[in-house]
């Protein structure tokens, strides 16, 4: 891109489309209260996972990447969301990763590029499953593989965690991990 072609206000305005959080806004969205003991243990595991994700994404994209746990919603409900990609971990207990489609596109393109050979009806999982789920170690390892799902089971009680993901200055987005109580 031509140097200085776009102003910061132009970029910020465009990135409003992608849940872009400015530092000031992010601080306002911070976890409202200190977690209890149980949540604290969960938080440690999720923060460890975020570090693993950072390393995996950096390897994939060849760029500095930072994933940080933003907040844990101890009990939430799944609401239908448009324009995101839902991945279900292949394990008896339900576990979902919710990625903004733009993030999936970016990682797939910058990471591995070519999509896997696919039957017509199966989503071409490529970089995301390897980078994120296979890097989560014991937390998700039992799941093995990920499958794309059309939509999440609606309004089911879940534990939900949100992660801020920064790969390049222009790509700051939010991943969500949704799982039932047994998975953590």
């Amino acid at each position: 891109m031509e140097k200085g072609l776009l102003t910061k206000s132009e970029i910020d305005a465009l990135m409003d489309l992608f849940e872009t959080q400015q530092p000031r806004q992010r601080a306002a969205d911070a976890e409202p209260a200190a977690p209890g003991v149980e949540v604290g243990a969960l938080k440690t595991r999720l923060e460890t996972m975020a570090v693993q994700w950072s390393a995996a994404l950096a390897t994939l994209t060849g760029r500095p990447s930072k994933v940080s746990l933003r907040t844990i919603l101890r009990v939430s409900v799944i609401a239908a969301e448009a324009s995101d990609a839902y991945y279900r971990c292949e394990m008896p207990r339900e576990c979902y990763l919710i990625c903004p489609e733009s993030f999936v596109n970016f990682v797939n393109e910058k990471g591995l590029g070519a999509l896997e050979e696919i039957p017509m009806t199966v989503h071409p999982l490529s970089a995301i499953d390897r980078a994120l789920f296979e890097s989560t170690g014991s937390f998700m390892a039992e799941g093995g593989r990920l499958w794309h799902v059309e939509k999440l089971p609606s309004w089911k009680p879940v534990i939900e965690a949100r992660f801020d993901v920064e790969i390049v200055p222009l790509l700051r987005t939010t991943l969500r991990l949704v799982t039932d109580g047994q998975s953590v």
Partner: peptide
Amino acid sequence: TVPDPAAITDAYATIKV
């Protein structure tokens, strides 16, 4: 363009030029 942050930013830059 596609609904991707980098693509949209670059599409906007193309429009601007």
